[in-house]
Design a protein around this nucleic acid. Structure first.
Lengths: 147, 147
DNA sequence: TATTGTTATACTCTATAACTATA
DNA sequence: TATAGTTATAGAGTATAACAATA
């Protein structure tokens, strides 16, 4: 039975359903385009946030990414094993770590950024142009955004 | 260090990042509002598709949902254990199953539908109105949609 | 040979609770 | 007491490969 005969009911007007389909597509394309630097979406976003906020704590980082601090620990373990990030002792609070990118981390992020350009272009084309893309990002940014 | 000092860099203009944040919010709200009928988003969408396409095969169902057929097996096992769906032998192809909702499955879906109304209302309010919601769904439906 | 459903495996991600060392 | 980081566990979801029954 071909897919074209499927009736999606009200699911095709369900925000959760279309969000999931879209995110699946975008993440798969991101994973594919990032494969030369071997970064998954979560790892990439960790590097971006640390780059723009050197010295921030793990709890701030987890909050910015919208993930649990327990999940962040293993993410950072992997990136630290690959010598891309560093946990340094925080000056003011000895419980806390100050997160920094290593030189290689900065280099990897720079490469990732170039690859991200190709990914963004793929999204633009898949989606139907700059205007729709911009509108979409603007509308989505209102949801669950860290204030 | 308060979150308000975080610099998200270009991440806040990254489609994958905002998609993930939005989906997280919507799914969490959906899980919360569906808790009286104990259905997760994937389970709910299974019931919806079967209801609108009684007798369809597992492979068609998996394709409609954008999940692997191996993943669907366990989803259906759970729902069948709860007597919400039935795998019946397909008339034309003895390899295949014809999926149906039980009477209790139809009742549960009807309850879920009513709860979904509250969820939709929560999304509308979180997001900022019917117009934005409709625009968003329309733009997202172009991504990775089954043709 | 190819397809449908199944089983198995490995990995990612989410959600929680509890522990330690500091505050 | 509360907080930052960690460890452990359970479940959900994703991605593959292989298998039996059937086409």
């Amino acid at each position: 039975m071909p897919e074209s005969t499927i009736d999606y009911g009200y699911l095709e007007n369900d925000l959760g359903y279309v969000l999931r389909r879209a995110q699946l597509w975008v993440f798969q394309d991101l994973i594919r385009t990032m494969s030369p630097v071997d970064l998954r979406p979560a790892q990439y976003s960790v590097l971006v946030i640390i780059h723009h906020n050197p010295g921030l704590s793990q709890i701030s980082l987890a909050s910015a990414l919208g993930i649990e601090r327990a999940r962040l620990v293993r993410l950072l373990d992997q990136l630290e094993d690959r010598k891309l990030v560093e946990r340094r002792p925080a000056a003011s609070d000895r419980r806390s770590h100050a997160m920094h990118l290593t030189l290689e981390g900065e280099r990897t992020l720079a490469s990732a950024r170039e690859l991200a350009t190709a990914h963004r272009q793929a999204c633009l084309e898949e989606f139907g142009g700059q205007n729709n893309y911009t509108t979409l990002v603007r509308l989505l940014a209102k949801f669950g955004a860290p204030q």
